[in-house]
Every structure is written in structure tokens, then in C-alpha cells.
Simulated scan of single mutants.
Amino acid sequence: MTAENPTIDDSEIACAKINLALHVRRRLPDGYHDIETIFAFLDCGDHLSVIAGTNIELSVEGQFSDGLSNSDNLVLDAARLLALHANIDAGAKITLDKRLPVASGIGGGSADAAATLRLLNRFWNTELSLESLAKLSEPLGADVPACVINQTCHGAGIGQDLMPIENGKLSGHHVLLVNPLVPVSTAAVFRDWDGVDHGGLEGSDPLLAAMAGRNDLQKPAQILAPVIGDLLSELNKTDSVIARMSGSGATCFGIYETEQLSHAAEKRIVETLPNVWTMVGGLR
């Protein structure tokens, strides 16, 4: 099947992902972990675009493109997976504008792979539903299906048992992301988890459940990167409704009732901790 539409919807945002809470319940025999989490997504992140091409190709540019491969990348894995699944023999020249730090706990490669699937689903006219794309994406990584869905949802299992939920009290809030520009290994953080099940998530409203919850990976991540503690300390001095580390770190976030408050917090953080990366966005 050859299908492409180079004039409509030829770009996609790989939205930054945050874990409002992340409860690790147990280690699984295959090396993964049984978790409970609340995924939420900002309206900003990496940018992908596509034009017609003979082959499936990738060009990586942007602030955090250094060290990323044009030939060994989850974006290409996602594109080839969709092409194989939908029997597509058309090419695609994809450009990834890398605006999010690498290995930072806010989606990164998972969000890029997910955005690639959404983008090429339109570009190649494969007409798969988001649910079908999410299912297709499971082999690409634990967080990819949630990033495909791209809306607030409850995640269980290894994070791929998803239940979309209403934003509830989250609606209208803005998020400040702060990263110390120190990459943290997800594998190392999970390895150093204390192995104790401290209980599951409670409550149906995502904000209230998050405020009552925790991130069980925060302590081991902070041991590997003590600067995470500095970020959280400063975020807690702002007008945040909640401040927490996302995923396996090292990015931390504060949630604010208004965009103005989030930008005021960003200004304070940058003045106090000048060697950090920040981004402000609304919640989807």
C-alpha cells in the first residue's frame, strides 16, 4: 500500500509526559516492575515533521540533539513498525526537533516514538485509532502507549494497562518543568528501589490522588543525583499546588493554578539555580 498526504497535518508535538504519582508495587520475573501511576501531558515538547521520501529517514536537530543517532532511534523503530503493520511501501523524511532533555523522566524517546505513530498515521492515511496505535506501540517501550494516548490516564502493570481519566481538579493548571541537565539511568534508579510496597493509589480525581500519593523512585534517583533535592526544595518555595520528581528523574515539576504563577516560579528557579533547563506548559 502506498499512501501519503504531505499537505495536511505534517507536524506533531511529542508532548512532555509527567507522572503525577508513581507507586512501585513489586519486581516482576522479567525484570520489569509492577507499578501504578497517573500520566499527564503538557501541551509542549519535542517537535516532529515529515515530508515525502523514497525511504524512511530521520534527521535530528535542536537543543538536545547532540549524541542522538539518525539511524538508531525509536522514531525510526516506530515508523518501520507502522509501515510493516499497515503494509506501507511509501517513504517518509522525518525531522525531530529535540527540545526536551534526554534521559529526563518526561517521555523523551517514548514521546517521540508515540508522536511518530500519530504523525505517520495521518501522513500515510493508515486510519488506525489511537487505541490501535497504542496497542501496536507496546513493544517500543513501557511508556510509549500512554504517550500515544496523550491524555491524563491511570497506568498499571508495567504502565501499559491504561485507563483514560478526566482531568477534574487538574483542569486549567499549568506546569513548570525543571531539569538539572544531569541524565539519570532509569535502569539504575529501578535497581536501587527499596523493594517495599508502600501501597497503591487512592482516589479518582488525578490531582487529589497525586497529592495523596508519592514517587517511589524519587529517593533512589536523589541518591544518584542529589541536585534533585535542590530542585524540589526550590519548587516547594513557590506557589505550587504540588512539586514532585517525574518518572525516574531527574526532571522535577511544579503544578500551578495559573500560567502567571508558573512563569513567576520559573523566574525564581532560574535566578536561584541558573544551570537548569526549564519549560512551562499547560496540561492537556
Rank of each mutant, 00 (worst) to 15 (best):
E4Y: 10
T7L: 08
I8E: 12
I8L: 11
I8Q: 12
D9N: 15
D9G: 15
D10E: 09
D10L: 11
I13H: 01
I18Q: 01
N19D: 11
L22F: 06
L22M: 08
V24L: 09
V24C: 13
R26S: 14
R26E: 05
D30E: 11
D30W: 10
G31F: 13
H33S: 02
I38E: 06
F39R: 01
F41K: 01
F41C: 05
D46Q: 02
S49E: 09
S49D: 11
I51C: 14
G53D: 14
T54H: 15
L58W: 00
E61D: 15
E61A: 13
E61L: 15
G62W: 04
Q63E: 14
Q63W: 08
D66N: 14
L68W: 12
S69N: 12
S69R: 13
L74P: 10
D77N: 13
L82T: 02
H85W: 15
D89W: 14
G91E: 05
I94M: 03
R99A: 13
V102Y: 04
S104C: 13
G105K: 00
G107T: 02
G107S: 07
G108R: 04
S110Y: 03
A111L: 04
A114R: 05
T116H: 03
T116R: 00
L117P: 00
R118T: 08
N121Q: 05
R122V: 02
F123M: 06
N125A: 12
T126N: 10
T126E: 06
S129G: 03
A134E: 02
K135P: 05
K135C: 14
E138D: 12
P139E: 07
P139D: 08
P139Q: 13
L140V: 09
G141L: 03
P145A: 10
V148F: 07
V148S: 09
V148Q: 04
N150V: 08
H154K: 07
G157W: 07
I158V: 15
L162S: 00
E166F: 07
S171E: 15
V175G: 00
V178N: 04
L181N: 15
V184M: 13
T186W: 01
V189G: 06
R191M: 14
D192E: 11
D194I: 15
G195C: 13
V196N: 14
D197L: 10
D197Q: 13
D197M: 11
G199L: 13
G200V: 14
G203H: 05
S204L: 08
P206W: 06
L207N: 04
L207W: 03
A212E: 13
N215Y: 04
D216W: 01
L217P: 03
Q218C: 14
A221L: 07
Q222D: 05
I223A: 12
I228V: 12
E234D: 14
E234A: 07
E234C: 11
E234R: 09
L235S: 07
L235D: 00
T238S: 11
D239E: 15
I242F: 02
I242E: 03
A243C: 07
A243S: 15
R244G: 01
S246V: 00
G249L: 04
G249W: 01
T251E: 10
C252I: 06
Y256Q: 08
E259H: 12
A265N: 07
E266C: 12
K267V: 06
T272H: 10
L273D: 10
P274V: 01
N275M: 07
N275S: 12
N275P: 03
W277Y: 09
W277P: 02
M279G: 04
V280L: 11
L283V: 15
